[in-house]
Design a protein around this nucleic acid. Structure first.
Lengths: 201, 201
DNA sequence: TCATATACGTACCGATCGGTTACATCGTCA
DNA sequence: TGACGATGTAACCGATCGGTACGTATATGA
């Protein structure tokens, strides 16, 4: 992700830009943030930005790829098998743990939702680089959730997977709409009931 | 909504602006559309816009109020009692009918989601006029859904209401992420199962 | 120590942003 | 006819937009 001089050497301009852009794009939205603001807050200059990124759109796409990496890191950390002995949490427990952790974050004042979802809302035009990253990621998430639904023993894995995706996306957006105490806090409980009604008995 | 000369008389500039803004803001996003584009496509001029609306932000807020009116019109049309005799659809049936109609629209290529949700994503700053309309509306929707959950006999109306809201918001955003064949098509089926698992038996 | 390549900054570009000014023109109704 | 309210014309404002031509530091290897 960070090409070189990563260890020890003083941070390259490109890295400072990436970090600053990530923060600003996520908190304020991509369209709302100008390249001038990014370079100023990063303590670099505009030519440095355009030497590392061909355009603002490309920088936005890079931000989203970084964002996606972190998303999967968190997702996998919560959902990938850690212990497999007796007493280790099963898939359903791990999924619900992930969702309640998500719900807690999302029902917090200042929460800004999913950077990838937000980017797709900001850029509805089909070919936009930022949107492409977002759409690709959501397709992958849908696959993962459907796989998990199958592993959970759903009678209709596609249906349960999609239902979980709807709940998750709903938590993302309603989290930033309602702030603290919003409906996102119920995402795990709702998912639990949906799973309950969707597994073969 | 439209102040006067509504019936018959040639449309006022303010109305043409409102209609054009509604279309452009919804399809392309508010930030993406400039006032010049609006007045040009509406066939009016910039001073006319600023004679009717104090600022672009105020125009955006007016667009969202129009959007909200139409939302409730559709919502109430589907959910308000029409016939009450024997054989008339009960609340649960009407809710599911509304959701499957929503799911159908949302799982269509070119779908752009909920204008109010999208506006809140575009304007994360707390005091923004557009965001205020959106947030107010979502609070009202949450109340309505919780009331309905109680009427449906939910053991925990707040939980079912929030679950339904998450599914609906999920359908809004995933509809514009996936286009045709997206997970939004499952919103009614998922809601049905969630309700099933949430009502007193 | 010097040449070279890489990394960075100063200053600037045309275009567009939201918004405003002063004044001309049109339709309508008394 | 005259007056009034609504709209159009045309030019303009400062600020900011994304993007660039070009000169200058700095680190490195011979």
């Amino acid at each position: 992700m960070e090409q070189k001089a990563a260890a020890g050497g003083r941070p390259r301009a490109a890295d400072k830009i990436r970090r600053t852009a990530r923060e600003l794009f996520y908190r304020e939205g991509i369209r709302a943030v100008g390249v001038d603001e990014i370079v100023t807050k990063a303590g670099v200059t505009k030519p440095s930005l355009y030497r590392s990124f061909p355009s603002k759109d490309a920088l936005a796409a890079a931000y989203l790829r970084d964002y996606e990496t972190e998303f999967w890191r968190r997702f996998d950390a919560a959902l990938t098998e850690t212990g497999s002995g007796p007493g280790a949490p099963d898939l359903r427990q791990r999924l619900l743990a992930y969702l309640s952790q998500l719900g807690e974050r999302a029902a917090t004042s200042g929460y800004r939702g999913c950077g990838l979802t937000n980017a797709a809302v900001e850029y509805p035009a089909a070919g936009h680089p930022a949107r492409q990253v977002a759409v690709e990621h959501k397709r992958a998430l849908r696959r993962r959730l459907t796989e998990m639904a199958a592993q959970l023993g759903a009678d209709d894995p596609a249906l349960l997977g999609d239902g979980l995706l709807l709940l998750i996306e709903g938590a993302f957006v309603s989290g930033q709409l309602f702030g603290a105490g919003g409906p996102a806090r119920s995402v795990a409980a709702a998912a639990d009931r949906l799973i309950e009604a969707s597994v073969r008995r």
